[in-house]
Amino acid sequence: MRIAILDVDYRSNVARAACVTAPSWATELPLATHVSDIESVQEYEPGAFYKRELPCLLRVLEQLAAKPDVIVIDGYVWLDGACRPGLGAHLYQALGNATPVVGVAKTAFHGAETCPAVVQVRRGTSARPLFVTAVGVDLAEAAGWVRGMAGLHRIPSLLAAVDQLSRSTFETPPGASAANAVAG
């Protein structure tokens, strides 16, 4: 299985989109890492976060040599019990409804604790859950994947790695663009 884990970090009006890939859910270290520096991002719009982040995710996904079997994002696929689409649902649609997307959020939206579209996953010794949502794959199966990801702590190792990669120092001056792929 080819898994792509994605995250984006913002600095003023620029962003760094990051992707780590892995051959299995139990993998501790990334198979490869990719970053894409985006020189101009849309302003944050309350209730429409996907408009800012989706183009960044699509940009870094363009660097992959092969289409992943599953994508993991830092965020939600569905936002409430009525299944209002979140970033993950918009990404799934942008990819032609062909690649399953699993959302892993660290904080709950209002009502997440009782939402049928959210599974709370506790990892390690943490009492605080991760909030898992999914599209294109059974939610219970997606929650099992997240539960089984490598790492002893609440945040799986690959999610921590992509977060760190997205926050890494930009390799180009602000205002310039770059797309880098680094074998990991």
Rank of each mutant, 00 (worst) to 15 (best):
V101L: 13
A117E: 06
E141P: 07
Q63V: 03
D80C: 06
S168L: 10
D37P: 05
V182M: 15
C83I: 04
L6Y: 09
F49S: 08
H110E: 15
G81T: 04
A108E: 01
L95I: 06
W78K: 05
V104R: 05
N13A: 15
L91K: 03
Y50S: 04
T21P: 01
E28T: 09
R16V: 07
A178G: 10
F131I: 00
V132R: 00
P30G: 08
C19Q: 04
R16F: 02
P173H: 08
D163P: 02
L139C: 10
L95H: 04
P174Q: 08
A65F: 08
A150S: 07
C19S: 11
V72I: 13
A127L: 12
L29N: 14
P85T: 03
A140M: 15
F131Y: 10
N97E: 14
L158Q: 00
A32V: 08
G47W: 09
A94R: 07
F170H: 06
G184W: 12
T99P: 02
P68G: 08
S126N: 05
P173S: 11
V70A: 06
G148V: 03
A26L: 12
L54Y: 10
V118R: 05
R84K: 13
P68Q: 14
A89I: 08
R84Y: 04
P156E: 05
A150R: 06
R52M: 07
V121W: 01
L29V: 11
V77T: 07
R128L: 10
C19K: 03
P46R: 12
L159A: 09
D138E: 15
R11I: 10
F49T: 11
Y10M: 09
F131V: 08
T99L: 03
V14Q: 12
V137I: 15
T21W: 06
F109P: 03
R59F: 06
V137T: 10
R84I: 02
V60C: 08
V121C: 00
H90P: 01
T107M: 11
N97F: 04
H34N: 09
P55E: 13
A160S: 12
S166I: 05
K67A: 13
E171K: 13
V77N: 00
T172I: 12
V101M: 11
R122A: 03
L57C: 15
T99H: 00
I155H: 04
D74R: 09
I155K: 01
T21E: 07
C19F: 10
A17W: 02
I155G: 00
N13T: 14
A183P: 14
A4I: 05
L6M: 07
H90L: 05
A161F: 03
L91F: 07
E28I: 05
K106D: 02
L130F: 13
H153D: 08
V70R: 15
V146Q: 10
A150N: 00
Y92Q: 03
E141C: 13
F49L: 14
F109M: 09
N13P: 02
G111L: 14
V119P: 04
G88C: 07
S177P: 02
A179S: 11
H153C: 09
L31R: 15
